[in-house]
Computed example of a mutant assay.
Amino acid sequence: MTSIEGTVAPGYERVAEAFAANLALEAGAAVAVYRHGEPVVDLWGGVADPGTGRPWRRDTLQVVYSTTKALPSACACLLAERGVLDLDAPVAAYWPEFAAGGKDRIPVRWLLTHQAGLSALPRMPLADLYAWHPVIERLAAAVPEWEPGTAIGYHALTFGWLVGEVIRRADGRTPGRFFADEIAAPLGLDLHIGLPPSELDRRARVITAPGEREALARLDPAALATRTLVISDEPLDLDAPDALTCELPSVNGVGTARALARFYAALIGEVDGVRVLAPETLRAATSEQAAGPDVVMGVPSRVGLGFGLPSPEVPWYSPSAFGFPGHGGSLGYADPETGIAFGYLMNRLHADYARPDPRAANLIRAVRAAVSPAGR
Rank of each mutant, 00 (worst) to 15 (best):
M1Y: 05
T2I: 14
T2K: 12
S3N: 05
P10C: 02
E13W: 02
R14H: 12
E17N: 09
E26W: 11
V31Y: 03
V31E: 04
H36E: 09
D42M: 01
D42P: 06
A48N: 03
D49Y: 03
D49W: 04
G51F: 14
R54A: 09
W56Q: 12
V63K: 09
L71W: 01
A74H: 07
L78A: 03
L78H: 02
E81R: 11
A92M: 08
A93K: 15
W95K: 09
P96L: 02
P96E: 02
A100Y: 06
G102A: 00
D104Y: 00
D104N: 02
I106H: 12
P107H: 05
R109H: 12
T113I: 01
L118I: 02
L121S: 11
L126M: 10
L129K: 08
A141L: 11
A142Q: 14
V143I: 11
V143M: 08
W146F: 06
I152F: 04
W161E: 07
R168M: 08
D171Y: 03
D181T: 11
E182A: 13
L187S: 09
I193F: 06
I193M: 15
L195M: 11
D201F: 07
D201W: 09
R203E: 04
R203T: 15
A204L: 12
R205T: 14
R205M: 13
V206P: 12
I207D: 10
T208N: 14
P210N: 12
E212N: 10
A215M: 02
D220H: 13
P221S: 04
A225E: 07
S232A: 15
P235T: 02
D237L: 14
N252D: 13
T256A: 07
R258G: 04
R258N: 08
A261D: 04
F263L: 15
Y264N: 05
A265H: 11
G269L: 09
T281A: 08
A285P: 08
S287G: 14
Q289W: 08
Q289E: 13
S301T: 06
R302K: 06
R302Y: 00
G308I: 00
S311A: 14
S311E: 15
E313P: 02
V314K: 15
P315R: 10
Y317F: 15
Y317E: 13
S318G: 14
S320Y: 04
G323F: 07
F324E: 13
F324Q: 13
S330K: 06
P336V: 02
E337G: 10
M346Q: 15
D352C: 07
R355L: 11
R359F: 04
A360D: 13
A360H: 09
R365L: 13
A366H: 05
A369I: 00
A370R: 03
G375C: 07
